[in-house]
């Protein structure tokens, strides 16, 4: 069993060049969506079946003639499947198409998926997309094929600034801690790691250094990072409760009056005497 791999995506040194997006499309032969102008530097829009990396651009500066950049005035983040330890997508998938690989990554088997799209409703990060062409769903494979051949994932390979760092998960976490400490020393108290520890879905194999609250980047905060199965028990409780109430209602409505007039009723007997 090879050791667990990870992505440390450091938004503080991302230059929004989108090399990761293109490298991913090239390697994975994704045609991409039809070109569409979206009023900003981001014309990719979101992660989906065609976009497995998506670079977000969030402008936060005022228009003063002097600015401090340092990755916090114009936020850029290369978003990707988080390869969650506790993966919502994997949890709901009825076919077992979504599996955890020997590299501890989350992978969708294209030959098993039947396109029910339940995983899409479950992924809290809106990562997975459905492809009409294949009739199945797609997302970042963590370059499973490249990992199997000892290669670095295409996006990390292409990233010029080491905003996307790839390696053994443990080492990535060490680097992230060091980088965070440095940023805090420089006074960027709002800098934070997302998914580095197990607070978010038991830990993310693709985790991030953010320069602001997770919500700013469209990432659920700890309180909202919850698994679908949380609603199983209560949901089925609702089912049983209603079933019982319904049964009582039925008994009340259908019960054989004559039998009652004779005293203690026995529906069973009533039914038996009416073959």
């Amino acid at each position: 069993m090879p050791e667990a791999v990870g992505f440390f995506t450091d938004s503080s040194v991302c230059i929004g060049c989108k090399a990761c997006e293109v490298a991913c499309k090239e390697w994975n032969q994704l045609p991409g969506d039809a070109p569409k102008f979206m009023d900003s530097y981001d014309n990719t829009g979101s992660l989906n079946d065609q976009n497995w990396r998506h670079v977000q651009f969030i402008e936060r500066m005022d228009d003063a003639p002097v600015q401090t950049g340092n990755g916090h005035a114009w936020l850029m983040l290369s978003d990707v499947c988080k390869h969650c330890k506790h993966a919502s997508c994997m949890e709901v998938c009825p076919t077992g198409a979504i599996v955890r690989t020997e590299f501890d990554t989350v992978f969708i088997q294209q030959d098993v998926c039947n396109g029910c799209r339940y995983c899409i409703s479950a992924c809290p990060f809106g990562v997975i997309g459905f492809s009409a062409q294949t009739g199945t769903v797609h997302k970042c494979t963590f370059c499973y094929d490249r990992l199997q051949n000892g290669m670095t994932p295409a996006c990390a390979q292409a990233c010029p600034t080491q905003s996307i760092q790839f390696g053994p998960l443990a080492e990535m976490q060490k680097r992230a801690d060091a980088r965070l400490a440095a940023l805090h020393d420089q006074g960027y108290s709002q800098a934070q790691l997302y998914g580095r520890d197990d607070a978010i879905y038991g830990g993310l194999n693709a985790f991030f250094l953010l320069m602001d609250k997770p919500e700013t980047y469209g990432l659920p905060n700890q309180q909202n990072a919850v698994l679908p199965r949380r609603n199983n028990k209560s949901g089925y409780f609702g089912m049983v409760a209603t079933a019982l109430l319904g049964a009582v209602a039925a008994v009340v409505a259908f019960r054989d009056r004559r039998m009652n007039e004779l005293g203690r009723g026995n529906n069973g007997a009533a039914a038996r005497r009416n073959p």
Partner: peptide
């Protein structure tokens, strides 16, 4: 009933914000 539970067991807004759908759909 289960179709309601199915919706709740997700992370969609509304669906996953309640546990009542199983009971509701059955009723």
């Amino acid at each position: 009933s289960y179709t309601g539970v199915l919706l709740s067991v997700s992370n969609q807004p509304l669906w996953s914000d309640t546990w009542t759908l199983g009971g509701l759909f059955l009723a």
